[in-house]
């Protein structure tokens, strides 16, 4: 079992199953679910692990600012090779940076060709990790954010649904995933799209956490609910949380 980097979750869920898919559904931006994902990523990098970040949402310069605000020294990890960024946003909208460790998908892009292009860059970077002997003693994690932005990028829900459902099957057969170590993956889903498409991602995930916030008087109350997990009971596990220096602090309700 791996760690969630959040003690309350490790305790409640008995750790994080290796190679699982974790879906974090951010019901509203004030819940700051993206920062929970960044927190996990920051701790995984700090412990020396390998991270592939799939940048679906932001121009690279905005992403670097977001990393900085969340205390992730992305330039250092890119340089050292622990962090690889697959810049889907930049590839689609032609915003290219010369940062080391940032990969672009080449040629025309659409829902149909995206799975194969991802496989290509993932394989290329995993080969680089293998050649440098970096898999030894390290875990591999993937973070993708924000998956719901595919709806705009790929031109609609039907295309996105097709992409999501086909790509996992293609991945499973690819050399990048058969011959090299596999990762444990975190996906963030924002508030775009209909329930139909969220349902499909929910079904694929091993764990589903939903974060949301509400106002009680002039106090923001944030909730994290474990909606799906191996070995779950009848009752939905529910936490409130707040941030201290960018670290989410959970308390059981």
């Amino acid at each position: 079992m791996l760690s969630w980097e959040i003690p309350a979750l490790d305790e409640a869920l008995g750790g994080l199953k290796k190679h699982s898919f974790v879906l974090i559904h951010e019901a509203d931006p004030r819940a700051r679910g993206k920062e929970i994902l960044f927190h996990i990523m920051r701790e995984k990098l700090r412990a020396g692990n390998l991270v592939g970040y799939f940048n679906i949402s932001y121009p690279i310069h905005a992403l670097m600012k977001a990393f900085e605000v969340s205390g992730i020294d992305a330039r250092k990890y890119l340089r050292e090779g622990n962090l690889a960024i697959i810049d889907t946003f930049g590839s689609f909208y032609d915003i290219i940076s010369d940062l080391e460790g940032v990969w672009y998908l080449r040629g025309s892009l659409s829902a149909d060709v995206l799975p194969a292009k991802y496989v290509e860059v993932v394989e290329a970077h995993k080969r680089a990790w293998a050649e440098r002997g970096m898999f030894e003693g390290r875990e591999l994690y993937g973070f993708a954010m924000d998956m719901s932005d595919y709806i705009d990028m790929l031109g609609g829900e039907l295309e996105t649904l097709r992409y999501l459902e086909i790509s996992a099957e293609i991945r499973a057969n690819a050399k990048a995933y058969r011959e090299y170590p596999k990762g444990t993956n975190f996906w963030l889903w924002g508030r775009k799209g209909s329930p139909r498409i969220l349902t499909s991602v929910y079904r694929r995930a091993t764990y589903v956490l939903r974060v949301r916030s509400e106002l009680s008087g002039s106090k923001v109350v944030r909730y994290l609910e474990v909606l799906k997990a191996p070995g779950m009971g009848t009752e939905i596990e529910r936490f409130t949380y707040h941030f201290e220096n960018g670290v989410p602090i959970l308390e059981i309700v």
Partner: peptide, 20 residues
């Protein structure tokens, strides 16, 4: 509402204004 999410992610400080 579309742009609040990036505002949260890239901001050092966020202040929401409400009537309470």
């Amino acid at each position: 509402p579309d742009i609040s999410d990036i505002a949260y992610t890239v901001s050092d400080i966020v202040i929401e204004t409400h009537v309470v």
